[in-house]
């Protein structure tokens, strides 16, 4: 991880367009060949660059796992926290300094299994954070164990005869808990993913983008699906874009059709909007708005 990257001479004279957004001194990153996470990082960096928000005002928080390492590669204030706790950590950052735009990037296991409780409550409260849930259908960092998103019948090291537990439908979960923005893309749909990140960041309140991403080393290998490239081809052939789809219809079956799109966009008062409005009503002029005094 600390080894120096040798960069070929002919490319050193031209700066990489994302030099200012990524910690290039940490490249190469730890992710496997044909993993989709690097693409997600690019899309996020592009969305941040285009958002118009000063990079100094952005914070990225990750939990643990392959996706947990995202925070370490994005050159903003970035926090690599404990397993499952990225959302409450981000909630603390945001509440203590509402000027910060806080983005959580973590995996399906981190956010939906061990961090599931925080996910639903942050959506319920409508805390103004953006959550990017990278879904590779498996616990990859630890070697391919079953996740709460593993499709039925898919093989995992702790479901050696195939998964018999029904998985979560993440957009439906976020929708039912009140998220202000819900979308799902695959890491192949890189421009739409970038747009979705930008929209999610611009939406006040709890916004969620699920990104279906290839894991070649564990998910694809265990299930004999080829490489990450084969999975991208699979997404190309089997993803269907259906904006506004009923989130109840978004289950993902093993090697079945994957519905992508922007499903929910409904801004509603955030936690801090409500806090200031309510205390304003209760205390009248005596109340000094919390967010008001920071803007």
């Amino acid at each position: 991880m600390t080894e120096e990257t040798t960069v070929t001479e002919e490319t050193q004279d031209v700066a990489h367009p994302m030099d200012d957004l990524l910690r290039m001194d940490r490249m190469p990153h730890i992710w496997c060949p044909t993993c989709g996470l690097g693409t997600v990082v690019t899309a996020l960096a592009l969305a941040l660059g285009k958002s118009g928000i000063p990079l100094d005002d952005i914070a990225v928080v990750s939990g643990i796992g392959c996706t947990g390492r995202v925070a370490g590669y994005i050159k903003v204030d970035s926090f690599h926290t404990t397993h499952g706790r990225a959302i409450p950590f981000a909630t603390g950052l945001h509440l203590a300094n509402p000027k910060l735009k806080v983005i959580v990037v973590s995996g399906d296991g981190d956010l939906i299994a061990i961090g599931g409780n925080h996910f639903i409550h942050a959506a319920r409260r409508n805390v103004d954070i953006t959550v990017i849930c990278v879904n590779n259908f498996i616990y990859a960092m630890t070697g391919g164990q079953v996740a709460p998103t593993t499709p039925l019948t898919a093989n995992a090291s702790t479901m050696p005869y195939g998964n018999f537990e029904p998985p979560f439908n993440i957009p439906h979960l976020a929708d039912s808990c009140g998220a202000a923005y819900v979308a799902r893309w695959s890491s192949l749909h890189v421009r739409r993913m970038t747009t979705a990140f930008a929209e999610a960041i611009a939406t006040p309140g709890f916004s969620l983008v699920e990104v279906v991403t290839p894991c070649s080393t564990l998910y694809a290998r265990r299930n004999r699906l080829g490489t990450g490239l084969d999975l991208l081809k699979f997404y190309h052939d089997n993803c269907e874009i259906q904006h506004g789809a009923d989130t109840r219809s978004l289950n993902i079956d093993f090697q079945g059709k994957i519905t992508l799109g922007k499903f929910i966009e409904r801004p509603r008062p955030t936690f801090l909007d409500r806090l200031d409005n309510w205390y304003g009503q209760v205390f009248g002029d005596k109340y000094e708005p919390y967010v008001g005094d920071r803007k």
Binding site: T5, T11, M27, P33, T34, G228, L229
Partner: peptide
């Protein structure tokens, strides 16, 4: 095009798409 050869892990995404 600028290719940082030694950063590549050979995924072929660029060639394919």
């Amino acid at each position: 095009l600028h290719i940082i050869v030694n950063r590549c892990k050979g995924c072929r995404f660029c060639v394919e798409y």
